[in-house]
Nucleic acid binder design. Sequence first.
RNA 1: GCCGGAGUGGCGGAAUGGCAGACGCAGCAGACUCAAAAUCUGCCGAUGGCAACAUCGUGGGGGUUCAAGUCCCUCCUCCGGCACCA
Length: 863
Amino acid sequence: MSEKYPFSVIEKKWQDAWQAQNLFAADETDPREKCYVLNMYPYPSGVLHMGHVVNYTLGDVVVRYKLLRGHKVLSPMGWDSFGLPAENAAIRTGVHPHAFTEKNIKHMRKQMTRAGWGYDWTRELATSHSDYYHWTQWFFLQFMKKGLAVKKSAPVNWCNSCQTVLANEQVHDGGCERCDTSVEQKDMSQWFFTMSKYAQRLLDGHASLRGSWPDSVLAMQEEWIGRSEGARVVFKIKETGEDLPIFTTRPDTLFGVTFMSLAPEHPLIEKLVKGSEHESRVMEAVNEMRRQGTSERDIAEREKVGIWTGCHVVNPVNGDIVPLWVANFALMSYGTGAVMAVPAHDQRDFEFARKYEIPIKVVIHPDTESLDPDSMTEAYADPGIMVNSGPFDGHNNREAMPDIIRWLKEKGYGEGTINYRLRDWLISRQRYWGAPIPIIYCDDCGTVPVPEAQLPVLLPTDVQFEEGGGNPLATSESFLHCECPTCGKPARRETDTMDTFVDSSWYFLRYADPGNSTQPFSLEAIRHWMPVDQYIGGIEHATMHLIYARFFTMVLHDLELIDFDEPFKQLFCQGMVCKTAYYCEEHKWLGEEQVINGTRKGDAIVDGECSECKKPVRSEMTKISKSKFNVVDPDKMIESYGADTVRLYMLSDAPPDKMQIWSESGIKGSWRMLSRLWDLVTENLKNVSPVDIPIPTELDSDNRALRRKAHQCILRVTEAIDGGFQFNTAIARCNELLNQLRAMKASPEPTVLREILETVLRVLSPIVPHFSEELWEQLGHKTSIFAHGWPQADEDVAKEEQLELPVQVNGKVRGHITVAPDTDGKTIEAIALENENVKKWLEGKTVRKVIVIPGRLVTIVVS
RNA sequence: GCCGGAGUGGCGGAAUGGCAGACGCAGCAGACUCAAAAUCUGCCGAUGGCAACAUCGUGGGGGUUCAAGUCCCUCCUCCGGCACCA
């Protein structure tokens, strides 16, 4: 690509200039209204990828737009710099994670500057720096004081490949989120944040976020929190008299219980069968179910298997004695780990009952027919009339629900309750490269929090990184051994570090006061900048980062450290970047160069063959990823086309929340737009009026039309941005204006020409900032284009002088009329009926009705 | 199965219930060139017609309305999320 316009020179020039001007420095003393625009910070992998480019371009455009709209903007950037890759690199290459991370940060900072993204680098933070993780540890201690950080033994998700535990949110389809290894269940004593206590608060917060956050994110969080209303009912085990509480959302079917299922992990099982004739038979089956684990239970065709324990339970509501089973579909982690089974009215229970020949008891009939347990082919789950249900016979089951719950409580059988799927947040990680959990274990004093004055607990350097060597922290003698802060005796440190999602749960707060060495932040600074006005990032964080950060913020609110409880006012999630990828049945994903004998259609190759096996290759539009060999290197793109062209392309094709399709010809289109505009401006430098010459009041119609288009452009671009970041249509509006300018035969009036060119540059300046700055300067301006604010549209100039209205006859356009904008309806009607084209369609018909929609159209109804 | 979103030219996509296809990409024709690239000009939903123009057309079917891509009902497909959650 030849350099049509000198982008590499001007991009460097303006990046330096902005830095010299401190364009992006956020200043508390600045009286303008604040606007905090935040992009989700990256993990410093060392290379920028296309996902970053979409995210940060979008963020930068918003930052610059807000600056132009007269806000003082806080636009910080930092690094989510703890985490596995640095540690894996240490195992592989022997380079310490700290050195590895710092090198990557340095490189990425440079790449970001080259892309033209403006940040207040004086506020930069890295979560792996001790002045940051000092406060991550401090927060842990505050949580602990409130009883929100607890160590408990619980079944945890263990990834054998990563040699660490995972939070529930980090397990996808039974596999580790990072490495896909199948996750095992293990009982381990680990640190948790008791997030489940905040389930209802998190849900309630949605009311204030609705409309400002994408519906999809709120929906995902709701699902994740998983509130369900029902009742807790206490059954008794007949053989031992022990209580067995269960949770059900269908207390209306309590009279239809014909068996009970326990989760294979339920602690009661051993006790019940011990020494009985059933012991070996039951334990064998139970162990098999446990061995499968939840993930394998999923895969095993979801076949429902179970085994009778030999025991029974007593149903409190009617005294029925029913068998107690262990079933592989019952989950220990939900409710109480015991499920009452009503086969007549629950499909899963129905299938199980048929399989094991357990009786079925109908307690709800449809209004019209009655059900026969022997001939039923599926469970009846719809509403109906209750039968065999003691005091509730004859009632509609839905309507009776509140009465049933009241009755359960009165009789002492149970009570109404709400259950949540959201569980506590497991934060322990058996890793080196994270914030150490500030805890000391003493033989005499037990679990002792590190005194705040002794923070930070620093990561030691005398550690060994070895493949499969477990947690490297445990190899550090200097770290492991310490004094008990309470009694002074030798003690040892906790070697687990915190999940990196803890780091990212408060980084947005630290940006407000990044240099504070005596507290995580001052309330004053927080009050000045928080909450975040616009948060921008990927949808993949919907149920992880975004729920943790909200939880953390609520806790800090309750600790009276901050005075709000929702951190992000407005959230925008950008779409994924996709590109065509190629797949061969035999050789899996192929790079473009491995596809042969195909025909190029646009950007894709169709009907190609695999260069190895000559088998047909299938093409698919899919997310850019290394494993599918369809990556695009943003650095190369910036080198070939310049940052402005890449930025423009990222925004010009589709709305930014949709999937973005990367195409080589697409970026050429953006390149063309800028090159042509460059020529247009530079060739007209001698034709424009000097700066600040007023536009004459008398202009010919072409010049008036041009000005009209320009002012309409400002209005519509503003609308497009404010109405949800629709930069694609904003760019289209600019092209329309430029097309009209080019189509004009005579040379425009010099002041008008200046107005048009300046308008385009100003509305495009957030998107192509270097380009706009340069041409703005060449047009004779001495100060930055960003100092001139957003252009103001003049409504009078933007107003149409003549309106062309379509005239419909019975819904079809049959002609057009031209009228002045203030023409009254009666006159318009008369003109429309006189129109030659329209008249043809009225011949021999009776006009029933004429409807004039002011400014839009005229429609005539005839018969 | 449940929840969220979406189905519009060859492609990405525009359209406060009011002229469907803005803007761009690709394609075609022409200009420039020894030639190619780049650039510039024109055409570009389908069908019929020399044309003016007409008919059809926003996943399928039905409805509301003077008027439906847009609203209502119903079905289908795709994408994303959740899922033995009791």
